Simulated scan of single mutants.
Amino acid sequence: MLETRALTAAYGQFRALFGVDITLAAGETVAIIGANGAGKSTLLRSITGVLRNAPDMVLHRGEPIGALPPEIVMRRGIAMVPEGRKLFPSLSVEENLLIGGQVRRAPGPWSLAAIYDLFPILQAKRLAPGTSLSGGQQQMVAIGRALMSNPEVLLCDEISLGLAPVVIRDIYAALPAIKSTGTAVIVVEQDIARALSVADRVYCMMEGRVTLTAPAQGVTRAEIHQAYFGGAA
């Protein structure tokens, strides 16, 4: 479904990624973990076209997309829930959701009704300004906005950041329903236990490189520690 091959990325003279190889199969959930500065968000920006690369460094269904602009990548079925949510402050909850539907692919499982079934609180708040909601509710809007495009690949960047544990639980409880539609998911997360609980496989990154690839349910604490910090557990 999605693959990076020897992916590199830089911000000016600063190199952020060094030859990153990852794969994502149809319907699979992959967690990408690592400390701040590991390159996780840069990886997602490269996949979505925010950072341009050589065409064959990112493949979608076997076709090179590394040099495509973000709007074309999204129309191909790759949507991102950005870190910090980035809702439109002048729009209501429902208007924010409808923005995602402006680039809808072929008919799929997600509509306003489906989003409201997934996150019922959003229907009650649908006329409120998007940024007037709590942080957790805003995250639900950001996820719903991405789903409204009916993506086959959903990229989630730090969706638990700054949220209370009970809210994080509710956000993550929605992921099985999303996966059940056949959507493949990449979850970038610093909460390792939470990420592993929903993932099929895990990649760990450190300083712009992949340091571990493993089944999420079979990886050990010592392996994660070594990959995360580069030292002995």
Rank of each mutant, 00 (worst) to 15 (best):
L91V: 10
F229P: 02
G19P: 12
A16S: 09
V202L: 14
L154N: 04
E158D: 07
Q217R: 14
A164E: 04
A25C: 10
A9V: 04
L59V: 02
V50I: 10
T4R: 03
L97P: 05
V202W: 07
G12I: 02
G66M: 04
A54L: 11
G66T: 06
V20F: 12
K179G: 08
R201G: 06
L97S: 07
A31G: 05
A146E: 08
P120Y: 15
G218N: 13
P89N: 01
E83Y: 00
F229C: 00
A174Q: 11
Y203E: 07
R76M: 11
I115H: 03
P69T: 04
G27P: 02
A113H: 15
L87M: 12
G136T: 00
I33S: 09
F119D: 04
I22K: 11
V219Y: 03
L43V: 13
L44K: 03
L24F: 14
T220Q: 07
V30G: 09
A10Y: 11
Q138K: 05
A128N: 09
I178T: 03
L24P: 09
V30N: 04
V202C: 05
A195T: 09
P82M: 01
S90T: 10
V185F: 02
M140F: 11
E63G: 08
T211R: 03
G162R: 05
V103A: 15
D117Y: 02
V188K: 10
V202Q: 12
G66R: 13
A113F: 02
Y11L: 07
M57K: 15
V153N: 04
H60F: 15
T8E: 13
G34I: 06
P165F: 04
E63F: 05
L97E: 10
P120H: 10
P69M: 06
A164H: 08
L59M: 15
T183Q: 13
P165N: 04
R5E: 11
S46A: 07
I186A: 06
Y11F: 14
G208M: 00
R61V: 00
R194S: 09
P89I: 02
G39M: 10
A184I: 03
F119W: 13
T48H: 09
V141F: 00
L154H: 06
V219R: 02
D56R: 07
A16L: 08
E207W: 06
A222N: 12
P89Q: 12
L127G: 00
T183H: 04
L212K: 08
A227W: 14
P82H: 11
T48I: 11
A199K: 10
V210T: 09
L133I: 14
T131Q: 06
G100Q: 14
Y11D: 13
V81M: 15
P109T: 06
I121Q: 15
A67G: 12
R194D: 07
I171M: 04
A26R: 09
I143D: 04
L147F: 08
Y172L: 14
I22D: 03
R145D: 02
A232Q: 10
Q137K: 01
L2D: 11
L51S: 01
M148T: 03
I143M: 13
Q190T: 12
A16Y: 10
R76T: 01
E152F: 01
R52E: 13
R61C: 09
V187Q: 08
E63K: 12
P69R: 12
V58Q: 12
T220V: 01
D191T: 02
Y203Q: 05
